[in-house]
Design a protein around this nucleic acid. Structure first.
Ligand SMILES: [Zn+2]
Ligand SMILES: [Zn+2]
Ligand SMILES: [Zn+2]
Ligand SMILES: [Zn+2]
Lengths: 169, 169
DNA sequence: GAAAAAATGTTACTTTATAACAATGCATTT
DNA sequence: AAATGCATTGTTATAAAGTAACATTTTTTC
């Protein structure tokens, strides 16, 4: 995976994926990471939880809870909201999924660490969401807040704009 | 109003208000700013819109739309959701109010410019929300995004943590 | 296998927000 | 002032997002 380096010399994973990238790999990586992480923690990645995670990773767009619901339901056996929300709760608790507040929607975590404050780049054109684990932003933000005497515990950083692909075309 | 200065030498309005500050001034300032801005733009700050703005400025906490609804309604004449949401829409369009996505709630704008990307400091203890117009964050964020080839058009930056007052006590 | 714990199913409901159309208010022209 | 046009508010209904409480099933532990 390509890397860029910012002015602080910090490594930054390239955020956006090409249109025709081998997405199976993204999914595969996410699922095996989930498997490993859950095994290691003694948490149970049940069928339902795994299905939800797979559905979320179906694309790089943020997914609405009720869309998941629809996709999980077949005419005979409708799945109910609590089922999906519980799966999401589990996946979020384990850092496998993030909620994007400004969209009321969910994306798979592509970050490295289990617990992290991520920032999101959200393309207004194509809808793709990309996670940045730029510690630099986190620090800049925390430093600025500190000037106001504020201690940051959790941050929501969601940037809406244009991704490189959509800018190009 | 007290000022702090960050490492870039940039001015930063002191974010949090004391517990017993003269809040009438905050309200007064907000309302006259609204008056002036609307007059200047030929926009109509109607009674309903003004009432909503006043209610929002009742405190420095973020207010839920349905709380506004309750406070606007008296037993006889209930106010309906669209009324409140329309007032909020107007106030947001003119930069007099911001929506705090991570809270599904609204706060009065205490910023200077009409159109700006603000950051919010949200105290998890007392609920007070403070607006920072730290251009430094905006720039840091945009710069980092640029490394990923992303163009930022709108940013949601909401920091949850402890305000100075609550930290002190 | 029985008991306990965890996960899922089910019902009902709360909270947040919007669509569509009717009525009213306000401003300008005649 | 009456007529016209547009902006605002009222009203009804419904969509969208999320949760509480309890029943049932599955999995683990003893
Ligand atoms: Zn992919
Ligand atoms: Zn992540
Ligand atoms: Zn005040
Ligand atoms: Zn503002």
């Amino acid at each position: 995976m390509a890397k860029a380096e910012n002015s602080d010399g910090e490594k930054l994973v390239k955020a956006f994926h090409g249109a025709h990238h081998a997405h199976g790999r993204c999914v595969g990586r996410a699922l095996s990471r989930a498997d490993a992480l859950c095994r290691q923690r003694g948490a149970r990645l049940t069928t339902m939880r795994r299905r939800v995670l797979e559905l979320i990773w179906d694309s790089h767009k943020a997914v609405k809870a009720y869309d998941l619901l629809d996709r999980l339901s077949d005419g005979e056996k409708p799945v109910r909201p609590p089922t999906v929300y519980r799966a999401l709760e589990f996946l979020m608790a384990h850092g496998l999924v993030h909620r994007v507040d400004s969209l009321n929607a969910f994306v798979g975590c592509s970050g490295a660490d289990a617990d992290h404050n991520a920032q999101f780049l959200i393309c207004q054109q194509c809808g793709d969401v990309s996670e940045m684990d730029g510690a630099a932003i986190g620090k800049a933000v925390a430093r600025q807040a500190q000037l106001a005497g504020f201690t940051v515990r959790r941050q929501t950083v969601e940037l809406h704009g244009e991704c490189p692909r959509c800018t190009a075309s």
